[in-house]
């Protein structure tokens, strides 16, 4: 059951101040409407994970990690690996987050990121079969929101993409007789094959203004948002409208324009962070020579 949420209470004085500034093209933290906060991407952050990244976007902090396991393929794609994305908003991240199974917001976030990765075939799942039809790599991508100060989807997507880029595939031993596959943890055969980079740009409607990367306070004043996934080639790879308000045709059109114009900045951040792992420029397509 999806239930109308209680919106965080923002003092009217503060709300008015935010709105008045937006009318003049400004934000309370001096940013422009279409400007992101400082972004920090630390790739390979968690030693025990096969891949991981920590992302800080202003005061929003997200940790994404990848674990690889050997498992069975889906029957409709017997020669492909499997990607599974989960997200959790940990209770430490906000007084409004409760312990327990992921709520609709966490599920939505995970599914938006899942689709944004799956549809443009970011992970080359076709290269992740170990014994075709029987054993394949299961790529577990888990996202944990550590501190919530707005724009969780973009921060999570950035962390996810960076974590995948840093992911190394463990070495395996295949028993020819039994067909049993043993993973040699700590030994690696190469990088996870990645076809292309993708980012999301979420455009928030506050009053009649469109902004990116809001703080939690700004987000509380936003009635609707549109997340647009954009590939490094400039294609639209997914979309999700959310929020209790609507968007006009013109607002959707404008939001897509904003997303296409901001995506290179975010892709650049990931590429830069992955330089040490994927080589100069972090060229995704050249990475992960592995069979």
């Amino acid at each position: 059951m999806s239930i109308t949420p209680e919106l965080p209470l923002i003092p009217r004085l503060k709300a008015n101040a935010i709105m008045n500034l937006l009318a003049r093209g400004q934000r309370i933290d001096k940013r422009k409407l279409e400007e992101y906060r400082d972004i920090e991407v630390r790739i390979g952050y968690i030693p025990n994970a096969e891949g991981s990244a920590y992302v800080r976007m202003g005061n929003t902090q997200v940790l994404a990690g990848v674990k690889l396991e050997v498992g069975q393929p889906y029957s409709d794609a017997p020669n492909e690996g499997v990607l599974i994305v989960n997200a959790e908003f940990i209770p430490a991240a906000s007084p409004s987050f409760e312990p327990g199974p992921p709520d609709e917001n966490a599920i939505e976030l995970a599914r938006v990121i899942d689709r944004s990765l799956r549809e443009p075939r970011v992970v080359a799942l076709d290269k992740l079969a170990i014994i075709p039809g029987k054993k394949v790599w299961i790529v577990w991508l888990d996202i944990y929101v550590l501190d919530h100060d707005g724009n969780l989807i973009d921060a999570s997507m950035l962390a996810s993409m960076a974590a995948l880029l840093s992911t190394r595939v463990p070495t395996v031993a295949v028993d020819k007789e039994s067909g049993e596959v043993t993973v040699k943890r700590g030994e690696f055969q190469g990088l996870l094959p990645i076809n292309r980079l993708v980012t999301t740009v979420t455009v928030y409607k506050i009053g009649n203004y469109l902004v990116v990367d809001p703080t939690q306070e700004e987000e509380a004043l936003s009635g609707a948002r549109l997340t647009v996934a954009v590939t490094e080639e400039g294609l639209i790879a997914g979309m999700q409208k959310a929020g209790m308000d609507y968007l006009s045709d013109a607002e959707v059109e404008r939001a897509v324009e904003i997303a296409l114009s901001k995506a290179p900045l975010l892709i650049g951040k990931i590429r830069e962070a992955a330089k040490g792992i994927r080589g100069e420029g972090g060229e995704a397509s050249n990475a992960g020579k592995q069979g």
Binding site: Q240, L247, V252
Partner: peptide, 15 residues
């Protein structure tokens, strides 16, 4: 009213 209330895209499209 010309208001879009649901919009999702599952797949890849050019602008």
């Amino acid at each position: 009213l010309g208001r879009i209330t649901l919009l999702q895209l599952n797949g890849v499209l050019s602008p």
